[in-house]
Structure formats: C-alpha cells, structure tokens
Computed example of a mutant assay.
Amino acid sequence: MHITCPNCSTKFSLPDEMFKEGAQARCTVCDEVFSLIQTPEHNVEVEPQEDPFVESLEAKETIAPEGDTDTLIGGEGTFGLGEPKKKEKSGKGCLIFFLILTLLGGACAGVWYLAPDLVKRFLPMEEKAESLPTSVANDVSRISLKNISQYYITNEKIGQVFVIEGDAENRFGVPKELIKVEATLYDANNVAIASKQQLGGSGVSLFQLQVLAKEELADALNNKVEILTNNTNVMPTKSVHFMVVFYDPPKNVAEFGVKVVEAKNPPIQ
C-alpha cells in the first residue's frame, strides 16, 4: 500500500499489515511524524507543476526495505520509512588517512634520528656533495702542473729574487677553483730550506719584478680581484697561471719542487 508524507509529499510503499489503528511513521526525507491511517485531505494527490524550476518538488516514491518489519520501528513506536544515507564512512576514512600520515611522519623522523647515514644514501647528489669529507672535496689528484720555469732576477729595491711560475691544468670532469700551489727550495742534500704557498690567478711582469718593493709585489701577487677572476670556476681542461716569488732566497739553493696543495669545488648553485 502507498502512503504519502503530508509535509513533503514523498510517497512510500509499505506492506498492508503495517496499516493498523494508531500506527505512526517517520518520513526519512523531512523527519515528519504522521499517522499511517491518514485523513482524506492527506491522501490528495498533488499534480506536478509545469514550471521546470520546481521539478525538485515532485513527489518521489520510496519503497520500504524488505524483510522483518520490526527493523523499521523507530523511536516512540513509529516506523522508519526507508534508510537515510549514512556519511559516517567518509569521516572514518579521513580519520584513517590522517592516522596513516601521522604514522609515516613519525617513522621518517625516527629513521632520520636513529639512522642518518641511511637517509643520506637517498639524498640527491647536490646534497651529498655538501657532506663530503674535506679530503674528497679538496681532491687535487687530477690537477696537473705544466710549463714550469724558474729564474733569478735582480730587483732594484730588494736585491735578488727567485721566481717559480707555471700553469695548473684542471683534468677533473667538473670545475675547480682557488687552486693553490706550494713551492719548496732544497739544498744539495735534498733538505728543504724554504717553502711558500701561493694561490694561482695573479702575476706580475718582468718590469714589475725589477722595480716594485717587497710589499708591492706581495699585494700584486695576492690581488683578490685577479684571483677571483682567473681562479674560480676553472673548467675541465682549462688552466690557471701561478707565480711564486722568494725574496732574498738562500744562497745554497740546489733544487726546487712544486706541488698542488688545494683545489676546491665551486659552491652549489
């Protein structure tokens, strides 16, 4: 048998045995409670309107679920017509998703704290470079020295000076910078008697070696502008020139040696 909600005009189909004297029903659409045995005015059929904007007001028929009619009994001795839509699942789903994210975040934090070396294995190469040991970051094994020359020259203010100059070539597959060399003077017994380190990238002319004072030569050889211009971002196969000057060198110099002591990696952009 069909029953119509007197409030929202929704139609329901219920078993005939439910229509007893005094029985009530609760509409699952608008929650209206009404008697199953309706007065005639409640059974009046409402004709659908032609206006397309009120189509949502047309009566809809809802069929009660099959099975034991006792399951349809609601509060206060009323019947529930159909089952309202349940939204608890979406809330539970969000809660479960939030708990999973929380657990994953805690696990990652624990791994980072307890096993940082394991985490570093999965870091990008740029981040790994920052954690390289100094011995690796300052590798000079593939900086090659070439065009080495040495000579004495007389300076009018200092006297005799000993000059060693040449080129340091980058044979790495990556850029290098601030390449530094160390020159050592030895006596006839191969004993070191003087040693000096110098950054490449700056130099002076023969005329300057002859006329500049000691302080002026030192400033020229350590000119920061020239060093930053010529001794930074030295690309593979490119060279940087160096010049080491010994003022008043020992009289018993028999040999000399030059080696690269530093070659840094450019900072990561």
Rank of each mutant, 00 (worst) to 15 (best):
Phe79Glu: 09
Cys5Met: 08
Val253Trp: 08
Ala188Cys: 06
Glu226Met: 10
Cys8Ile: 02
Ile164Asn: 07
Leu178Met: 13
Leu118Pro: 07
Thr62Cys: 04
Tyr152Ala: 08
Leu199Asn: 09
Val174Ser: 14
Asn189Gln: 14
Gly82Asp: 08
Asn155Arg: 00
Phe12Asn: 00
Gln210Pro: 06
Pro266Leu: 07
Ala64Leu: 15
Glu32Val: 11
Gln38Ala: 08
Val211Phe: 10
Met18Leu: 15
Ala168Val: 03
Phe242Lys: 09
Ala23Asp: 09
Phe97Cys: 12
Thr237Ser: 10
Val44His: 13
Val258Phe: 05
Glu50Thr: 01
Met1Pro: 11
Ile268Pro: 11
Asn189Arg: 09
Leu199Trp: 12
Thr62Ile: 15
Thr134Glu: 15
Gly82Arg: 12
Ile227Pro: 01
Cys8Phe: 00
Val258Thr: 10
His42Gln: 15
Ser141Asp: 06
Ala109His: 08
Val140Trp: 06
Val29Cys: 04
Ala183Met: 03
Pro15Asp: 03
Gln160Met: 15
Val174Phe: 15
Gln49Leu: 15
Glu50Leu: 13
Tyr113Ser: 15
Ser141Phe: 08
Gly105His: 01
Glu21Asn: 14
Thr102Arg: 10
Phe122Ser: 14
Pro116Gln: 02
Glu47Ile: 14
Asp248Ser: 14
Pro124Ala: 02
Phe256Cys: 08
Asp248Glu: 07
Leu145Met: 02
Ala23His: 07
Phe162Ser: 03
Glu177His: 04
Asn265Leu: 15
Gly200Met: 06
Arg26Pro: 04
Pro133Lys: 03
Ala59Gly: 11
Ala254His: 06
Gly91Phe: 14
Val161Trp: 01
His42Thr: 08
Leu199Ala: 07
Thr39Met: 11
Leu132Ile: 02
Lys157Cys: 02
Ala64Lys: 03
Lys196Asn: 06
Met125Thr: 14
Leu178Gln: 11
Pro15Trp: 00
Ile164Pro: 07
Tyr113Gly: 10
Leu212Val: 05
Asp31Met: 14
Ala59Glu: 09
Val234Glu: 04
Pro133Gly: 07
Phe122Ile: 12
Glu50Trp: 00
Asn222Lys: 09
Ile153Ala: 10
Ala137Met: 09
Val111Cys: 11
Leu206Thr: 09
Leu95Cys: 11
Leu114Tyr: 13
Lys176Ser: 05
Val225Pro: 03
Lys120Asn: 05
Ala194Asp: 11
Thr69Asp: 13
Phe172Asn: 02
Tyr113Trp: 08
Pro15Ser: 09
Gln38Gly: 05
Lys11Ile: 13
Lys92His: 14
Pro250Ser: 05
Asn147Lys: 03
Gln269His: 10
Cys108Gly: 13
Pro236Asn: 02
Val136Lys: 05
Gln197Trp: 11
Leu217Ile: 13
Glu17Cys: 07
Glu262Leu: 00
Asp248Ala: 14
Glu216Met: 04
Ala168Glu: 00
Glu226Val: 04
Thr4Asn: 03
Val46Lys: 13
Gln198Gly: 00
